[in-house]
Design a binder for these strands. Structure first.
Lengths: 351, 351
DNA sequence: ATTTAGCACTCATATGTATTGAGTGCTAAG
DNA sequence: CTTAGCACTCAATACATATGAGTGCTAAAT
């Protein structure tokens, strides 16, 4: 049964029930609908309609003498067809704009801050995925001497990401010599993808470096680590304590299990997986999500872009009874602003 | 009244009550003490002793018909005089040693991992303070060209910490010229403390750089940021969901408030403040802590060192009814291992 | 053919009441 | 000084009852 096959009145009743339920978290009765929907019919009429809506699977009844609650199918229809655009509040606009103009220079800190603000504005916990840069290549490598046993390895990728690391060598090496090793390594590795440094290249480098091949090991190790961290980026959770403001999470044991589940990086990535490669806003409702643990939760996810390709995700997680339209607008506005900001930050390539 | 002024029997009774209460979380009655303490006296005798111990302030009674519960003073006596050393389990030793040998190269990730493991082993939430490096000076500065409008700024401190940042300039600058600017900046700033770059030095640099003084602004900005992050380092919270396993935190609203309180970086730093500059293990019990919010919590904190001075803290937070002896041993063993590891990592200075 | 007033019925929730039992302090005997 | 005995306290638990929001169904009204 498609939602549009229902008559106008049923749809208005469904929408009214969903919106009321989202607001109050209490099952909605026929009397309340009669008053709030503005249809001008009595509660008895609404009752008949509600019984039909339940039969068709749009509503559910927790127990005989309770009001109705939207089903997952009902929420889906609401999100796809019924919900009307939410107007952002002045606070939403102000806080988002303040963030966008704060010009935090470090990308990671900026995203942490983004997650914190989204959680604050929406009132739900947020999940923020750091940029996932598949297929980055090495733009430059530098080895900078600190003393004769230590050097700083600097790695810049074609995406403009930088990694550094202090490396220690078991044998001493003079700064001037390190300089030469550095430019040699740079020449050989520049342009190669982070993931695809073949044994042949390594072999060749070892031969070229000769006596100083001992500096190679930490270099390759760092490249491997960088590749790893770009391929499977961290997902940061923030504002998880906000769950407790929601009546759905009054059960301590269930909520504890849920939070424990969300501690794991792998789990977090899976939570966000439906938004991977999906541009714009993605919403999963309850058991639509492949993860069993999210049976009773909904996730609203938005991509952000670096340059022109989507590289990361900012999301909000909560009960299926979520403020879909409000959060949708908030995430939409926020990610659009963020995209704009990031496009400036990465900047027009000049070559 | 000093704890050592009590007779042996009273002390044994007090210790038995505290240990039983820590284990069970239920007020301890005279009968249980008579059986567990192994004193071979009847519960009536114990009752008389307990009444006195309460009068003297070592015990408290939640209500007339309940058993006794240790007072803050009681816990303090336990921690200072009564508690016996806890033997670490094989699991504790294994996990700690595995961590110490995992050789995570990045210091920050290593500390994150440390906090996670301490939380797992102890069963309480952990707070981990990143290294606080007061009075660091600049060891070297490098500006490495990426393209004509971008360069990577690399900052190494005398403590061997590295910061980098991509900087954009509004005017183009040729790599060769940037190279010269770089060595000029390095010469002028090298050796200066991060916090104390005087306006005079800045003025002088501006004059020396002449047409290229526009690269100076991001450089100084990064130094300010680095100084800031070293002076007031981040404190990472982990395993907060473990609070829910403790009966003390069954009250959702109180726990929510507590968790919200712990979200704030400033609050976290204050939580750890009693351990600042205090070598070894520090314990605060309930209202001993200056923070009102910790009235009902205890904190066990251990320093870790970089080189030979304490720079950071690993701590565990929980109810006053905490496994003081177990956690004490766990943190002690862990931080000692960590210190050993870090002393190798920083290495013997060679100049 | 719809709509609606009326009414009996359901059932989660709240409130009130009785029961239970762990633990106490006190007294008097050992 | 120790302990058996006992009356007393009070949180926790269980149970019974009342309340009321909401329902489905029927029959009359539109």
């Amino acid at each position: 049964m498609k939602i549009m096959d229902l008559n106008e009145r049923k749809r208005r009743i469904l929408a009214a029930i969903i919106e009321t339920y989202i607001e109050t978290a209490d099952p909605v009765g026929s009397k309340a609908v009669a008053e709030l929907s503005g249809l001008g019919v009595s509660s008895a009429t609404i009752r008949n309609e509600m019984a039909e809506l339940e039969e068709l699977g749009w509503l559910e009844q927790p127990h005989t003498s309770a009001g109705r609650v939207p089903s997952a199918q009902g929420y889906r229809a609401y999100v796809d067809y019924l919900m009307r655009r939410h107007r952002l509040t002045d606070l939403d606009l102000m806080r988002t704009n303040a963030f966008l103009h704060s010009r935090v220079s470090e990308l990671e800190r900026m995203l942490d801050e983004a997650g914190r603000i989204i959680s604050e504005l929406t009132g739900y916990p947020s999940l923020t995925m750091r940029p996932q840069l598949r297929g980055s290549a090495i733009r430059r490598i530098d080895l900078l001497p600190v003393d004769r046993h230590q050097f700083v390895l600097l790695l810049v990728t074609t995406d403009g990401m930088v990694k550094n690391r202090i490396c220690r060598t078991w044998a001493p090496i003079e700064p001037a010599l390190l300089q030469e090793v550095s430019s040699l390594v740079d020449r050989r590795l520049c342009g190669l993808p982070l993931t695809g440094i073949s044994p042949a290249v390594v072999e060749e480098l070892h031969r070229a470096l000769d006596d100083f091949s001992f500096v190679l090991e930490p270099v390759l190790q760092t490249i491997r680590e960088a590749a790893e961290s770009f391929e499977t980026p961290e997902v940061v959770l923030d504002g998880e304590q906000r769950l407790f403001d929601l009546p759905e999470y009054r059960d301590l044991d269930k909520t504890r299990d849920f939070l424990t589940f969300l501690q794991d990086q792998g789990a977090r990535r899976q939570v966000l997986s439906p938004a991977q490669g999906h541009d714009g806003i993605t919403i999963t409702i309850g058991s639509e999500h492949p993860l069993e643990e999210l049976r009773e939760s909904s996730v609203i996810m938005g991509n952000y872009k670096l340059g022109d390709r989507p590289v990361g995700i900012i999301a909000v997680i909560g009960p299926t009874r979520m403020h879909y339209n409000r959060v949708f607008s908030q995430i939409e506005y926020f990610t659009q602003g963020l995209n704009h900001l990031l496009s400036q930050l990465v900047g027009p390539k000049e070559e």
